[in-house]
């Protein structure tokens, strides 16, 4: 039987909900990034928002591809006609590779853009080279999926280092939460790597990812509540 992805059967559908939650969180962060960019015109806000938006699109590709595979393809196979099954499998192969290619590409591009937001890189030639390499990585990882998770892990570790530096500088609990959230995203990538050898670990990786995005979601919620509290404390 043709197998798509590493998600164990019992976890199918649940992973879609987790990825949808991650997608909503990313869109929410991107929304505020864009809102503050319109207010300040600061370039760092623009690339920050764009990075989160690109990663959100990456999750959208993952959700759409998995949703189609879990619902449409699995059901079509039950028809039992040889030609229909053959066509479905061929089409689903294309969909699987194309959907996950864009998921991987956008994820790596988003993480790289987030990284460049903080290092404020001006060298456009180097940027073109890195983007080219990321496209290659995304393409090659159709056959060697672990290269994708390894690359994402590398980019996330650089971001984790930056967020911990920010936390040490400001000593703010909220920046510590961002650092913890990104650390958990890195841990999730590690578990995704291991899921290639033992597919049950895919569920654990998704749960770690859920925890990471839940912390990010809560952090943004607290950021907004904090601004409100400071202003509401005074008489109007």
């Amino acid at each position: 039987m043709l197998e798509f992805g590493y998600c164990p059967m019992w976890f199918r559908g649940k992973d879609l909900l987790i990825d949808l939650f991650s997608l909503v969180t990313l869109l929410w962060v991107a929304f505020f990034g864009l809102k503050y960019y319109r207010l300040t015109k600061k370039k760092s806000y623009r690339s920050f928002a764009l990075a989160f938006l690109i990663i959100a699109f990456s999750f959208a590709f993952k959700v759409l591809t998995n949703f189609t595979i879990y619902n449409v393809i699995t059901q079509s196979r039950k028809i039992g006609l040889v030609t229909v099954t053959y066509q479905t499998v061929t089409q689903s192969h294309i969909l699987y590779h194309l959907g996950f290619f864009f998921h991987r590409l956008l994820m790596l591009l988003g993480l790289y853009l987030l990284y460049t937001t903080y290092i404020r890189r001006k060298d456009s030639a180097l940027n073109v080279l890195v983007i080219y390499l990321l496209v290659i990585v995304s393409f090659v990882t159709s056959w060697a999926y672990y290269v994708f998770h390894l690359t994402a892990l590398g980019l996330l570790l650089v971001l984790v280092r930056y967020y911990y530096t920010t936390f040490r500088r400001f000593r703010m609990n909220l920046s510590r939460l961002v650092a913890i959230s990104f650390s958990l995203m890195a841990v999730a990538e590690l578990v995704f790597l291991a899921a290639g050898f033992y597919s049950q670990l895919y569920a654990l990786a998704e749960l770690v990812q859920l925890l990471a995005y839940f912390i990010l979601f809560s952090t943004l919620f607290m950021v907004l509540a904090h601004g409100k509290k400071n202003t509401a404390g005074h008489n109007r």
């Binding site: 207010l39 909220l174 920046s175 961002v178 904090h226 601004g227 202003t231």
Partner: peptide, 25 residues
């Protein structure tokens, strides 16, 4: 004197500053 629109702006401004520090922007 501060008007309601001023308080609203200040709220947004403080949220933005908090956002900026939290994400190290």
């Amino acid at each position: 004197i501060m008007k309601d629109k001023g308080y609203e702006f200040l709220e947004k401004f403080r949220q933005m500053k908090e956002f900026e520090k939290t994400f190290g922007l």
